[in-house]
Design a binder for these strands. Sequence first.
DNA 1: TATATTTATTTGGTGTACCAAATTTTTATT
DNA 2: AATAAAAATTTGGTACACCAAATAAATATA
Lengths: 221, 221
Amino acid sequence: MAHFSHHSEENYLKTLFKLESRKEKKVNNTALAKALNLNPATVLEMVRKLADRKLVLLKPDKAIQLTEKGKNRALLTIRKHRLWEVFLVEKMNYKWNEVHELAEQLEHIESTDLVDRLDNFLGNPSFDPHGDPIPDKNGKITNNISVPLSGCTEGKSYLVINLIDTSDAFLQFLGKLNIMPGIKIKLLEKVEYDNSFSVEVQKKNVQLSEKVAMNILVQHA
Amino acid sequence: MAHFSHHSEENYLKTLFKLESRKEKKVNNTALAKALNLNPATVLEMVRKLADRKLVLLKPDKAIQLTEKGKNRALLTIRKHRLWEVFLVEKMNYKWNEVHELAEQLEHIESTDLVDRLDNFLGNPSFDPHGDPIPDKNGKITNNISVPLSGCTEGKSYLVINLIDTSDAFLQFLGKLNIMPGIKIKLLEKVEYDNSFSVEVQKKNVQLSEKVAMNILVQHA
DNA sequence: TATATTTATTTGGTGTACCAAATTTTTATT
DNA sequence: AATAAAAATTTGGTACACCAAATAAATATA
């Protein structure tokens, strides 16, 4: 009856897009397999199918590269995922850390029209509850707008852009931790029970309260 | 990675429930296969798996019967389907006749919690946009509340309960067609281009305008 | 009852997406 | 260059959900 080929296809493309975005180095079969938590043999087989469908290119140096078509598909999936996350948090009253699994399911609903309506219904948000940017219907990502560190994603690195609270007390406090615009911060963990933030600044781990994190504006680095 | 077994399982159970509700006669393999538009061999194989999982019983006379467990699962799926339909119509501004395909996808999202929140968000509706009742979280269906014939389902039979417009002209008009409380009506077709309704009343086919259909209150028969 | 028809069941196959284990190829290191 | 390590690839499987066609069993009809 129904075919779910698009389901796993979307997962591959989405993951590939994310790996390519980090562009630390070329994405090879091993990296993709590890990111998808699948056997390399499986991934190789699927990647070849994706190549047949003109969604990826298999470079001579074994790099796996999204084509334009593949990138668009990936962006659509990411758009769906992030919009559903906004829906779950804003309308269904879930907390930001509870929505990933559900969004993982909802992102595979097939209908660009529905996503566009959802986008509208939610007031065309630019960021999801984790602070990640939501591609618009053309796949364009509003990037580099600074957001509070408190809304950011665990495990990602950010560049401090600005501080909301500019009181002397606050600036001195941050100064002691070496946090200031231009400095790179990695968000290690959002601690549940006291809403505090574990971050890494210049090789050192420090703990920031929610109030502090809300006053630090950062960009994706 | 993900397993979609629940997907087809839910389709079988849902269809089985609907066939059993019509209880014209026992549901056999052929009937189920025809309803699902699948090969009888496929259906037999799957029904046996469902029996292993204690979701259906295979009676000695070859009848396929839902167990309590199976019925609950079917009702949950129907609940999900109908609530998503309400969502699509009320919040996403789709028309009632555009939502079936999408709801067919959304009904397979796995999370009873999400459905319950959705139910709440939508104001705990008792009927979907087609006029079909929505099971509550315990699987209970609010039945026998009369609804306008205009919101009913093609192919189903209804009992006329009441008339909204009680003007003489309307009653006389209906009288000529033998439509009155207590009479049984089968909704044959909702005609798209003029929003009229093809119905069968006492073996005769008649055409009702939308205005007329909106003024006839019926119950599921 | 014998025959025809319908329904159930079996058999052998398909495509998708996955895996483990063995092998080959590539890359790095000594 | 020789060897060790890592990555790519091949091979032979699995489970799920489907199908067409053949056969068996049950039911209906002449």
